[in-house]
Write a protein that binds this DNA or RNA. Sequence first.
DNA 1: TTTTATGCAAAACTTTTGCAAGGCC
DNA 2: GGCCTTGCAAAAGTTTTGCATAAAA
Lengths: 142, 142
Amino acid sequence: MSFENLCDLLKRNNFKLTDQRKSILFTLYENKDSLMSPEDLLVAAKKRCTKLNLSTIYRNIEALLKLDLLYKHIKDNGSTLYKLKLKDSHAHHMICTKCGKTEAVDFCPIEAFKGIIDKKQFQLTEHKLELYGHCKECSDDE
Amino acid sequence: MSFENLCDLLKRNNFKLTDQRKSILFTLYENKDSLMSPEDLLVAAKKRCTKLNLSTIYRNIEALLKLDLLYKHIKDNGSTLYKLKLKDSHAHHMICTKCGKTEAVDFCPIEAFKGIIDKKQFQLTEHKLELYGHCKECSDDE
DNA sequence: TTTTATGCAAAACTTTTGCAAGGCC
DNA sequence: GGCCTTGCAAAAGTTTTGCATAAAA
């Protein structure tokens, strides 16, 4: 999905394209492969729109989550990170713990669990799988 | 591991078994298959030791995490839950989103990812996999 | 003009910390 | 007695909310 498509999608959902919102969207789009904290997003988006408040960031995050356009990731230390979810397909990710870059992995092993789960009479509704490590670039730096 | 073994383990690590600590440990032990929030833990442990403060809960959680005796789970809404980790084997869990009960699953599919990951030159250090749904009891209630 | 968004400040939560007092070993 | 623990209160960090104002459509 292009940046323009993204804007259109928001318009169709009765979102007004304010400068603040555009700067937030554009910043997310620029960093669409990296996870960002609300604070990261504020700092980066301010480069495009100086008058921007943290509460606006949070309100926009909330809105994008409702539209299922954001992927929410909570780190082990509890801090919350986001990135755009541009295609709504189910995917798992490799997450670089050094630079925060993410990459989708085109494989899901959930079928292998089905037998085990059925035996326990557990009704599966969802699952989460994430791979952590160092991406090629960060490994090279070592 | 029994509750007594657990106490011994702490003693060996120079932990003093105060009433507060014992009540926290016992409460965790009683609920060893369920995830609890710090607040849950406070309320439940107070039944055994009235004089108990939330900061003591947090300090003990911290200590147990360092000993790798606690499993930390962060929910999608950001709230943090804990349960005892009595065996240190790597395991994935089925988590009931209704009652919070958890059960370990004796299967890990990570090998299936190795080829894909190597191709991307990603250095895997860790992974997280969790299964969400309804346990047998909660399904029956529907 | 109507509706949605925003900034600002304050509030609400959760978690951490400093310090003096208390309790275990 | 010495060292670890605790309660209490205050601080710190993050996220949410109320309200008047501003901007988009």
